[in-house]
Simulated assay, not measured.
Amino acid sequence: MDKLSIKADLYMGQGAMDRLSEWRNKRMFIVTDPFMMKSGMINMVFDRLHSSNEQYIFSNIVPDPPIEVVTEGVEALRSFNTDLIIAIGGGSAIDAAKAMKLFAQKLLDQRDIPFIAIPTTSGTGSEVTSFSVISDKQKNIKYPLVSDDMLPQEAILDPELVKSVPDFITADTGMDVLTHAIEAYVSTKANDISDALAEKAMKLVFAYLPRAYKDGNDLVAREKMHNASCIAGMAFNIASLGLNHGIAHVAGAKFKIAHGRMNAILLPHVIEFNADYKPGYGKEDSNRAAVRYADIAKSLGLSAPNAKSGVRSLVQAIKQLQKQLNMPQTLRECGVDQALLEEMRVSIAEGALKDGCTATNPRVPTAEDVLQILNKMFQF
């Protein structure tokens, strides 16, 4: 038996930020990052808040938020006697706020505080998921947290917040969306609901990511990608993810490569591994994952007369999309040299197999499988 619940109320489209003006007499704990403060984008929040509210601004967020920052935030949240948490920023700000909320409840016996998530990038889907990723900077390890207690009550998706995102971040985060959707679709926990969400997200990415990359002021493309990120988040919140994220969490931290970019480099190789793709194999050799990938290819209008052809078409379409976005396709292009790969590869393989996302991968990997994927990523 599967249980599905969509907890967050969604406020979507241009003008969605106006929802904030409806809150009154709250002690608002606002989690954001230094860029939001320095750029003045945080004023999109302040300009909409009623004068009856009090605010505490926690802006110490950095990419891949470390445990120490989360701990600091928990103490500040408690001391302020918070009524409402608002997280505005990329995945790091929202993930940090989710972890703060969770630890405040579990460790300090705080009440369940209402939580609003406002993403300023179109990638993580964190505003509708029960996942958060925090880091141990000393060990270069990312820790995925999973708890429905972290789910926001509301999410505000306003395309005005993402139109100034640089093109390379648009590319990285957009490929993260695609990876979320594809992994959710082939997950061992996939069902009809997650399939529908994942399929729609994939179609939106292929249709609108190149447009958003080319012209950040294209608000139609920005809105569609913002929606795609949220939809893919719903999909993987139901079905979970797979080996792609299992490796990316560890390798991204070790090599200091942006999460979405690492996912994009991995994606063709993980698809071929899961499909057990071998040149010359026939229709009768296709496994469940290969058939599912072929279904994706068909839904995107790609050639897929059989599973083998569908897998090949999907991989080629992903590589073509990467080229359109001027993205690196190998670790070498990201500045990883052979010596660093040799030093890190075993610990990455071990960490990937322990990662919670890997548990729902459609094909059970071994350490040797991960090592082979890493070798292919290096100079494919």
Rank of each mutant, 00 (worst) to 15 (best):
S122W: 02
G351Q: 04
A212W: 06
I6C: 11
M37R: 13
L84F: 10
K106G: 03
F80G: 01
M17A: 08
A304P: 08
K354C: 11
I61M: 06
A97H: 07
F58Q: 06
H245A: 08
R332H: 10
E350M: 09
I116E: 01
L321G: 02
A297C: 09
N237W: 04
E22I: 14
L325H: 02
D276M: 10
D109T: 14
M44T: 11
A207G: 02
D9A: 13
F168P: 04
A258S: 11
N361Y: 07
K200T: 13
E333D: 10
G301F: 09
L302R: 09
P166M: 02
S126W: 04
D33S: 11
F80S: 06
A212I: 05
R363V: 13
K308P: 00
E68I: 10
I30T: 06
M1N: 12
E284M: 11
I30G: 01
F46Q: 10
M234E: 09
A181D: 07
S52Q: 08
F58I: 09
A275Y: 08
Q138F: 11
I94M: 11
Y11N: 11
S92P: 07
V70C: 09
Q55A: 13
N306D: 15
N237C: 12
A339P: 00
K7N: 15
W23H: 14
C334Y: 01
I238Y: 05
M225G: 02
S51G: 10
I116V: 15
V291K: 14
N274F: 03
M327H: 04
I271S: 09
A228M: 09
M12W: 12
S164T: 15
V250A: 08
L10K: 12
K142E: 05
Q110N: 12
G73W: 05
L374P: 00
L157W: 02
Q153E: 15
T358V: 08
S126H: 06
L340Y: 01
W23A: 10
V177E: 00
R332A: 13
I67M: 13
V74K: 03
E342A: 13
I182E: 02
T188Q: 10
D112H: 13
L145G: 08
T179S: 15
M327K: 06
R211E: 12
A171G: 06
F35P: 00
D215W: 04
V133H: 02
L331E: 00
L108G: 05
T32C: 09
R261G: 01
S79W: 07
V311D: 00
R111C: 03
D195P: 06
P268W: 04
F380D: 12
I156Y: 01
V62K: 13
Q372E: 14
V205Q: 00
I318T: 07
Q110I: 11
G260I: 01
S59R: 03
I6F: 14
R211A: 11
